[in-house]
Amino acid sequence: MYAVFKRELFSFLSSMVAYITIGIFLLVSGLLLWFFPDTSVLDYGYAELSGFFSLVPYLFMFLIPAVTMRSFAEERREGTYELLITKPITLWQIVSAKYLACLALVLFSLIPTSVYYYSISKLGLPEGNIDSGAVIGSYVGLFLLGSAFTAIGIFASALTKNQIIAFAVSAALCGFAFLGFDYSSQIFAMQNFETIISSLGINQHYQSISRGVLDTRDLIYFISFSVLFLFLTKLVIEGKK
């Protein structure tokens, strides 16, 4: 499993795709946080990163599918898929290794954004006037959100050998998982099903963690969500095998 994880991670790091994708993510998030008038923290006037954590999920809907789209799709396109699944490791280990490699890249993309926290902390009056607990909770929420989106991306990549199709399917599923249940709940608002349907979506649980409250129900939700899509990925691979 470690060999597959290392191979996958170094495969990403040896190509320009990972650097371009992460670079675009950092560039866009930086512009939105510091320069665009409607979202700039400097114009907002408060020492907090709530705007940043509200914007990143939408960037993740495109960043993570771009990272995961090649996981299985490229293996099938290059003809190494059959060689991979005949190695003396289980399918679950293969799926987990690829998932962890993609998740590591998502983590790498988040680490540089800690500069934003340091900068705003220094700019606050008085210096350090920022809710660190809420920031830490929001980063935990972002990581869990990234883990859920990564599981979706791995699943989409296993469905096809075309990376563009894998990207489109993954982005659509991520968008629905994050926002679809909230919009769907409005249809049933008068039937008292609104709360139940909203709780099935990612957004409600992400917002809960972003407030700095680590509820075990939210943690169980994200873990279960990721495991579900990894299990579906395994089923897809078994079917193609």
Rank of each mutant, 00 (worst) to 15 (best):
V56E: 08
L59V: 10
L59I: 15
F60E: 09
F60Q: 14
A66M: 12
A66I: 03
T68W: 01
R70E: 07
S71G: 15
F72S: 04
F72V: 02
E75T: 05
E78L: 08
G79C: 13
T80K: 15
E82C: 05
L84S: 09
T86E: 15
K87T: 12
I89T: 07
T90K: 13
I94F: 12
I94L: 15
S96H: 06
Y99T: 05
Y99D: 07
L100E: 02
L103H: 04
L103N: 01
L103Y: 04
L107Y: 00
L107P: 07
L110N: 13
L110V: 10
I111A: 13
S114P: 04
V115G: 08
Y116I: 00
Y117T: 14
S119G: 03
I120W: 09
S121Y: 09
S121V: 00
E127N: 04
I130C: 01
A134Y: 07
A134E: 12
V135H: 09
Y139L: 02
V140F: 09
V140W: 09
L142G: 08
F143R: 00
F143V: 11
F143A: 13
L144I: 15
G146C: 00
S147H: 02
A148I: 00
A151T: 03
A151C: 06
A151F: 02
I152L: 15
I152R: 06
F155P: 00
A156M: 04
S157F: 10
L159V: 05
A166F: 09
A172K: 01
A172S: 14
L179M: 09
G180L: 07
G180Q: 13
D182N: 14
F188W: 13
A189N: 05
A189R: 11
